[in-house]
Design a binder for these strands. Structure first.
Lengths: 198, 198
DNA sequence: TCGACTATATATAATTG
DNA sequence: TCAATTATATATAGTCG
C-alpha cells in the first residue's frame, strides 16, 4: 500500500529501511491498540530495532502483568494455602531455608510465586513506613496540633461514653465503638492510620 | 476500513467482537511479520483473548530470547539510581544485619529507602523470572519439539565432535561450542526446564 | 533529517451464499 | 456458523519542500 507494491524482504537501503521502520512501527502500534480496545484483549508488543533501541506497547497492562494474569488463572487453586503476610525475619528464614544456593534461577515457579508475594508485602510495608516517617517529618506544627486535637476529642468522647455506659448499660457502648471505628481510630494509632494512606 | 467507519471502543456484540478479533489478529500478526522482515528488527507480540487463549508471534529470535533482552534493558535502566543490584543472599544479609529488633518500625528513613530499592529490585527480578518460566510453559508443542530436535542435533554433533577429537585434537571442539551457543543453548538447564514442565 | 502529501496497496466491516 | 465477496476505510511508498 503505497505508490508501488513492496516485496517482503529486508530493505537494503539503510535510509528507507529506517523510514519504513518508523512508519510501520507506529502503524503496528496503532493496530495493536485498536485491537486491544475493540476486542477487549490484552496485548503486549516489544520491538528491538537493529540498533538496540526498545519500543514497547501493552494494552492495558504491562507484559509482566499480562502474563501474571494468565499464570494467576492457572494457579488459583494453589494460592489458598499461601501463608499470611510474614514478618521480615520470617521472610528471611523462609527464603533461606528454601534455597540452598539462593540464586533466582534455581527457584521453582511455586517458590517464585511465594517469594513474589512476600517481597511485595515487604515492599508495601516498607513504603508505608517510609511514607509515615516522611509525613511525620513534613507535617506542620498546626496540622499536628489539629490531629492531636481530634485525637483528644475522640478520647474525651470515649471517656464520656464509658461513664455513660456505667450508668445505662452496654448498648451505647457498641454504638460508640463503631463510631470511633469510622474515625479510623482502633487502638490509638489514629495518626499512623492517616499517614499510611498514599 | 470496511463498509463503514468503526469507532474504536469495545464491540459490545459478542459475535462480531469475536469475528473482528480473528480478522484483526491475523492482520496484526501479518504486519508484525512484515515489519520484522522488512526492517530486520526483533519483535515479540503476545495476545491473551478474553477467554484466556494465548496467541504469540516472534520475529527475529524466539519470544523468550526477545523478552530476556527486554528484561535486561529494563533492569539496566532501573539500576542507575540504585547501588548495584544485590543477589538474594546479599539482600537477605543486608536486611538481617540492619534489623536487630526485626520490626520495620526501628529502621531509619535512609535505611528504609535502601531497603525499598532492594526489595523493588528483587521483586522485579522475581517477576521477570516467573514470566520467563511461564512463557516456557506455554510455548506451543511445535516449538518445544523444534527445540528438542535442535538439542538432539547439538548432542549428536557434540558426540561426533568428541569422537573426532580423540582422533584429531581439540580445535574442532571449540568451534562446536560456540555453535551450540548460537542455538540458544547456554548451560543446558533451558531444555531441562522445558522438559519438566507440563 | 523531517513532515506533509498523494497515489496506490491493503485491511477489513458488512454482506452474501 | 462459516468462507467468500465486495465496498470502503486505512496504511503507507515514494515524492516534494
Amino acid at each position: 500500500m503505497g505508490r508501488r507494491k513492496l516485496e517482503i524482504k529486508r530493505i537494503e537501503d539503510k535510509n528507507s529501511r529506517q523510514v519504513t521502520f518508523s512508519k510501520r512501527r507506529s502503524g503496528l502500534f496503532k493496530k495493536a491498540r485498536e485491537l486491544s480496545v475493540l476486542c477487549d484483549v490484552e496485548i503486549a508488543l516489544v520491538i528491538f530495532s537493529s540498533r538496540g533501541r526498545l519500543y514497547e506497547f501493552s494494552g492495558g497492562k504491562s507484559l509482566v502483568k499480562i502474563l501474571e494474569r494468565y499464570y494467576g488463572q492457572e494457579s488459583e487453586a494453589s494460592k489458598d494455602d499461601t501463608e499470611a503476610v510474614l514478618s521480615l525475619t520470617e521472610l528471611l528464614h523462609m527464603v533461606q531455608s528454601r534455597v540452598e544456593e539462593p540464586s533466582i534461577e534455581q527457584l521453582s515457579l511455586m517458590d517464585l510465586e511465594k517469594l513474589e508475594m512476600q517481597l511485595a508485602a515487604a515492599l508495601y510495608r516498607t513504603r508505608a513506613r517510609k511514607t509515615q516517617l516522611v509525613l511525620e517529618t513534613i507535617l506542620t506544627r498546626q496540622e499536628k496540633e489539629k490531629l492531636l486535637k481530634a485525637e483528644n476529642d475522640v478520647l474525651e468522647r470515649e471517656i464520656a461514653a464509658m461513664e455513660k455506659n456505667e450508668d445505662y448499660g452496654s448498648e451505647m457502648g457498641t454504638g460508640l465503638m463503631s463510631n470511633t471505628e469510622n474515625l479510623g481510630h482502633h487502638h490509638l494509632p489514629h495518626m499512623q492510620t492517616l499517614m499510611l494512606l498514599p
